[in-house]
Design a protein around this nucleic acid. Structure first.
Lengths: 340, 340
DNA sequence: AATATTTGCGCAACCGATGCCGGAATAGAA
DNA sequence: TTCTATTCCGGCATCGGTTGCGCAAATATT
């Protein structure tokens, strides 16, 4: 096992001190140009790489950012991750991904783990289960830069990036109404999530605009965000068996949409009998049967923006006091011959 | 920004030296039980966490393992990642995920990056583009433990975990034959990948067993592994337009399967006209239209086994000379009313 | 020629934790 | 009482870098 080359090796070989070598390599201070050239050439030649671990220890900086998502096996989040990486790598940051699986405990463990590995900042979308935010508040008060995307919380003042959940839900709901549907069920995510509330408001607003009374019985929450299929199936069953039969379903999230379609298929209730529209960034959505009309979020862009925001916080000279919440437009795709 | 608590803080507060505190906390050496108790209690009280960065620097160990996959937005790989995490976390290792996007360059950059961040070992599935393995050979010769899963290479002697690709391909192909198909096209991944070769052999063997001549014209390679849709569409078009019309398609990988279905749908050639079977770990496969029969790999298990192997290499006292290749069974699911 | 100013580089401390070595205090043996 | 053996703990160097400070030689200033 050939040990990696260190500053000391270069210093010894060239007869300089390590400090001179260090400064020469980073064009630092006042070092003779000739010396710099010699050092740099030699370093290049023996393929010297500075040890990032040592740098982290010395500088309290790790040049890595932590990401917490529910799960990577979800197109929305994997697209976000791609967006994050596209910015982070270019700016010299490493990305450490971890999954909460929508569980509170995993989220706490992961955020602590990341903070402990001294990431320079955190990008997070809250798990569906999380109701207590003290693990994040602690970190934030201790100065760890955090940027929220998708599922945010109010308790922490910082940059946030979200889709226009209100408008997305509004558009999908109104699309149903314009197609003559008036009994629109809403299959919703965990009730305390920001996205759940925003999308519910959009749904309500569309109803209101068209003078349809909001009926809370049409709203069914899944507090595990679709991670437990039975929960979704149960909700779908209820929707199908309502006294005043629903004539459309608006679904609040990606995983729920899949669960909903699966349940409908199981109950032999395809989109012919009841059309479904939901938030989804799946890459196979066009191939699904029953079909799914969908509200698409600009996930890649969301990842990019969140990362830019985070890096600006990390690299800020002065403590940042002004925070921004970016809202990105969604797009509705109608995927059903009976709808326009 | 309250600085994290260090050994020194405890030492100062308690009037011990840092070395004593260090040893007390790790039940090391001969430290008075009373002292240990005092130190541990105090450490607990002020929530002391040892600094993993410092540990890494000191011990040349980072307790993290690097993972390189094509992309996380692929159910097969995300299931593998879940398997990896399920073992790694329990054994005290952190998992750092990176994506090659099936590109050679990204793979090189990522492996170097990981090695540089001093991961203790590497889990990797080769990118479709990679033909030169020197970046891995270098690392391996320098003593970095590596375990391959899914897409392996022969050039490096180490532990490997793969699915029984031969049998999986054989089963799918034979299923078609038993259903009276004899002109079975094969949509294959990049030709130099291990999985491509193994699956091709299984396909050939099934034909041979049933005395059907192997016709190379029925095999169409996609050297970007389906990352570029046009490539897949082109191959599918060729398959549909063959003089001696194909009456079934066997697809070699997950992404290609999706691409194939998308192309078929576009050409209005559903699975009624031509049934498709392919390797897939998609979680929505039952909802796809055209339908897809599929060979499923035990991805979660694969991740677990690979990780156990890697950790055993990392923690081995003696250099390991005997290597093992674990082959896991696949399972065929027929998803088409016309097939049995 | 004497003094002031640059220029170029090395010494040593430091980041947080570990491990070797050595030494004080106490106990037991001669 | 003196000598050896334990027990328990502190000092110091180290991992691989960065950085403040100081010092000597080279150059500029008077």
């Amino acid at each position: 096992m050939s040990k990696p080359v260190t500053l000391k090796d270069i210093a010894k070989a060239l007869g300089f001190s390590t400090s001179t070598v260090s400064r020469a390599l980073r064009d630092d201070y006042e070092i003779n140009e000739e010396t710099k050239r010699i050092v740099k050439e030699y370093a290049e030649q023996i393929a010297y790489k500075s040890n990032p671990i040592a740098l982290s220890l010395k500088g309290r900086r790790s040049y890595s950012i932590g990401v917490v998502v529910c799960e990577v096996a979800n197109s929305f989040f994997s697209q976000i991750i791609n967006g994050i990486e596209s910015i982070a790598y270019g700016r010299g940051y490493h990305v450490i991904i971890s999954q909460s699986h929508d569980q509170y405990e995993r989220e706490v463990i992961n955020t602590k783990h990341l903070a402990n590995r001294s990431v320079d900042g955190l990008l997070i979308s809250m798990s569906a289960e999380t109701k207590d935010f003290s693990h994040l508040i602690n970190l934030h008060e201790n100065g760890l830069p955090i940027v929220f995307f998708d599922r945010t919380i109010d308790k922490i003042q910082t940059h946030k990036v979200i889709a226009n959940n209100f408008a997305g839900a509004f558009d999908a709901t109104e699309m149903f109404i314009k197609n003559g549907r008036s009994h629109i069920a809403h299959l919703a995510n965990a009730p305390h999530l920001s996205i759940t509330k925003e999308r519910l408001e959009g749904y309500k607003a569309a109803l209101k605009k068209h003078s349809i009374a909001f009926n809370p019985d049409y709203v069914h929450y899944c507090s595990h965000g679709g991670m437990i299929y039975e929960e979704v199936e149960h909700a779908v069953k209820q929707i199908l068996n309502m006294p005043d039969k629903a004539d459309a379903i608006f679904v609040s999230s990606d995983r729920l949409s899949i669960g909903c379609l699966t349940a409908l298929k199981k109950f032999h209730a395809g989109s012919d009998s009841i059309p479904v529209a939901g938030f989804s960034n799946s890459d196979v959505v066009e191939l699904l049967q029953p079909s799914l009309s969908y509200v698409r979020q600009p996930a890649f862009e969301m990842g990019r923006i969140a990362t830019e925001m985070l890096i600006s916080l990390i690299e800020a000279k002065e403590p940042v006091k002004e925070f921004e919440t970016r809202v990105l437009d969604t797009e509705l795709f109608i995927n059903d011959p009976n709808l326009t």
